[in-house]
Structures are given as structure tokens and as C-alpha cells.
Amino acid sequence: MRKFVFAGILVLIFTGGMLMVDNLTSAQTAPPTPTPLTGPMGTQADPIAPNSLTSFTVSNPYCYQPDPAVDKCSINFRFVQATDNQSSAPYMTWLAFTISGKKRYNATAFFEGTITYSYDMVPNGLIVACGSPNAGGAGNQYGNVYGVTIQPLDSSRNPMSTDIANVTCPAFSP
């Protein structure tokens, strides 16, 4: 009888130990917490010039094909906003969008310290070629993949922050 009680105690101690080890292992393998965002829906404020650019918020860019019979797709963003504190250099002067290395949009900060872009400011979006199926390697449903860069620039056109996204367009397959 004593032996059974002893065996039971041993098993309980061992089980407790194993559960503790298991909990520790689980805690170590948990996915990393994503970087906290300061903007309502976008990216963190620029760490390089925290005293100048107070916020830089970018929503996801997207690509759509208005007419499947034409090799023209449209890239746009719901919302982009960059704000400068207007009290310390460098001062934000422009907000630029670049698609595959080509500047396609440039807004100037002249009356305000904030530049805001909304999709309806360019109603048809920025037109690009959709590309043939799998042109960008994303599968037959997709065509070209474009590198889209969003940058607030200072008066010397130096980037104050940079956000880059690869945007995949639907394929042109008439």
C-alpha cells in the first residue's frame, strides 16, 4: 500500500515538473508581438527624425483591373498622411509616391504642416500595366508586381521616412 502511495506522489511530482517545462516551452515558442503602431491604421512615426516628423500613416495599397479587356490596372491607397511638427528642421516639404522607381505623385506642404492623401484625390488611381499571367511570379491569376514607395521629403528632397510595399496586380488575360 505504502509503495503505491509513494509511486503516486512520485508521479504527481513528475507531472507537475513536466507541466512547468511545457508552459515554459510554450512561452518561448509563442509568436513575436508585432511592433505597436502609433497611427490610427498605419506605420510608426519615423525613428530617424522623431522631433520633426510626428506621424506618418499609410494604409494598404491595392491594385485593381477596371476592364478585363484592357491591359491597364490601377494602383491606389485609401489614405496616406504625414505630419511635421513645423518647429524643428528638417521640414517636410513634399509627399511623394514612386511606382517601380518612377515618381507618380507629389504633394507640397505649403499652407499646412500635414499632407493628406485620399484615394478620391486620384479617382482612377495610378495607371500601370496589369501584365500577363504570372509575370511577377505570384501565380496565374496575377500579373505584374510593383514596388510602391511612399516618402515624405524635406526641402532638399531627402526622404524623412520611407514605406515600401509590393503591390500585385490582377493578370491581363483576355
Partner: peptide
């Protein structure tokens, strides 16, 4: 036929 695509680059949504 896929006609529009939006990836979650800057947001989890």
C-alpha cells in the same frame, strides 16, 4: 478571374 487585390502591408486588415 481576380480583379482586385489588397495586401496587408502596413495593417493587419
Amino acid at each position: 478571374k481576380v480583379r482586385a487585390n489588397m495586401s496587408g502591408f502596413f495593417e493587419n486588415s
